[in-house]
Write a protein that binds this DNA or RNA. Structure first.
Lengths: 321, 321
DNA sequence: TTGTAAGCGTTATCAG
DNA sequence: CTGATAACGCTTACAA
């Protein structure tokens, strides 16, 4: 394998000079530079990145930990990947599937310096376990977390959820069922938003206890069966995300229930599926959050980082309400 | 930073002995081994992976090049990731978005030995360009390709497509429109399958020219508008994949068209979306293909590899036909 | 069973 | 502007 020494020998210079050419250092004789460059080209030479990483103490790879590919995590990852590339970083994705062991693989790679930093979309281990890895490199999360070791690009969902609820109210829905997710700390904020909303409009509940821990298409489908079984069902359902709303909507329609005629459905996130199914939803700017996450990482790595974006929710009114 | 020399010094042994303990070599005095292990634990030592990679000439990372996350690529990647992990390999995903430059990033990482191998789900550059990188490490593809440099785990779709067409015929559809994708060499095989099918049943076409280059949800939606505009539309549409079928189905129903009453729709792949929307489709075993891809890579890396699976299509009859 | 020492391929310091 | 040379942290003959 052709290495830097080979190039140096053939060019009649030292490895130091070749390295200088490689790294665009000033003070290299123009003729030698050309000669070196020509040899690099001719011998199809490329620096061995393990050697460079070892020497520089940096791999320029950032790990992305996600439990699975949902529409919303995909959009985050897409944006994160883009901005990372623009700064000369590559990303390595870890699908944990909620398995703590798989998440640990990523954490261990940070520890062994195969990764410079980590962004954690969904965690599988306890926070204090993850925090114990923060000493090996910067970690940032998308979930809500108040920690000095692990910054978060999480957005307070109180405002977004309130926006959605007000929309349901404006469209005439009164007996609103809340379907919450469970992981992360979104739920308490959404519950607070609902409580304030209900108080402001002097509303009772839907007559049914709210749901918790629902986040998938399948959860939405089960919810549809539940709704059909009720003698006195809610007139609107505010879902934890677009996937749940999508499962709910399609299964209800499949069973002949009219949406929004018999029941209004609100999603959350504004992903592709929501667009496809004409779901009313709340736009959650995950791409901007991804860029913010990268900025934080870059900053903690001691590199010049762009200013973070200001973030805002937006209501997207479509056919399901 | 604590390194192997530090451990060796504290344990009163040489770095060679520590390395032997680390790599489970035999012939290490039990007491020394315990001592070393204890120090490793106490000092929270972990080998620097850049150093190991440099020395071993291997990173145990495999790159996965995909143009984007579709339901079917996700299922391939999921399965690939799983089997790779079981063999002590990690994967690095590259979303190219059809951008040749982004694909080149992955190829260059193979060249610079940051990656041991590459699996290419969708290519962005010309094949001969990609092939020129095969000398740097094994590359395998999911697309159809006949090349001695780049093996393929592609499945001949003739049989799968024929299966789908026979199903449409059995359900009474006669004027079938084919919607083909364009990339890769699936299309000629599917066209051949249709030609043979039509000849066997003495069928004419749908009265419309087939479509080409359709692969996304959006394409499906546009197709729905086209269908509605026809005075004499086809009675069934065989789609290039489940995404197109899903877009077509939802948009048609949104416009009040009855499926399968007025038109039958057949997908291809059998992904989650197909399940959700009750789409009839042809099951394409992408998980098994992923495992085969990994086996090939492992074998070319000179490691013992599992036997590849035999692969077969399966018709999944649901509500859309 | 163990240690010495020679790499792996770079980068960076320090003289010149 | 350039070249020796010492790291970076690990593995592995080779010798003992």
């Amino acid at each position: 394998m052709t290495n830097i020494r080979e190039i140096a020998r053939l060019a009649g210079v030292s490895t130091a000079t070749v390295s200088r050419v490689l790294n665009n250092h000033p003070y290299v004789n123009e003729e030698k530079r050309r000669k070196v460059l020509e040899l690099i080209d001719r011998l199809d030479y490329v620096p061995n990145s393990s050697a460079t990483s070892l020497k520089k103490g940096m791999t320029r790879i950032v790990g992305v930990v996600s439990s699975l590919y949902t529409a919303s995590s995909t959009s985050f990852i897409q944006a994160f990947s883009l901005i990372a590339q623009r700064h000369g970083f590559n990303i390595m994705i870890f699908l944990t599937d909620q398995d703590p062991g798989k998440e640990k693989v990523a954490l261990e790679m940070l520890r062994s310096k195969q990764l410079d930093a980590l962004v954690c979309l969904h965690r599988a281990n306890e926070w204090n376990f993850i925090e114990s890895y923060a000493k090996y490199g910067p970690i940032v999360t998308w979930q809500r977390l108040v920690s000095d070791r692990i910054p978060s690009v999480f957005m307070d969902q109180y405002e977004g959820y309130r926006l959605g609820l007000e929309h349901l109210h404006a469209r005439g829905f009164r007996r609103i069922l809340n379907v919450y997710s469970s992981r992360g700390l979104n739920t308490p904020q959404r519950m607070r938003a609902y409580a304030d909303f209900a108080a402001a409009h002097e509303l009772g509940g839907s007559g049914h206890p709210d749901f918790h821990g629902k986040m998938s298409l399948e959860d939405g489908e089960e919810l549809a069966h539940w709704w059909i079984d009720q003698s006195d069902p809610p007139d609107a359902i505010a879902c934890s995300n677009d996937d749940v709303a999508a499962g709910l909507l399609t299964e209800l329609r499949r069973r002949g229930v009219s949406v929004p005629g018999e029941v209004g459905i609100l999603g959350f996130d504004n992903n592709n599926l929501a667009r496809l199914l004409d779901l009313s939803t709340v736009h959650y700017p995950s791409d901007k959050q991804a860029e913010n996450a990268f900025s934080i990482l870059l900053d903690r790595l001691g590199q010049p980082a762009p200013q973070p974006h200001a973030l805002a929710f937006e209501l997207i009114a479509r056919q399901s309400t």
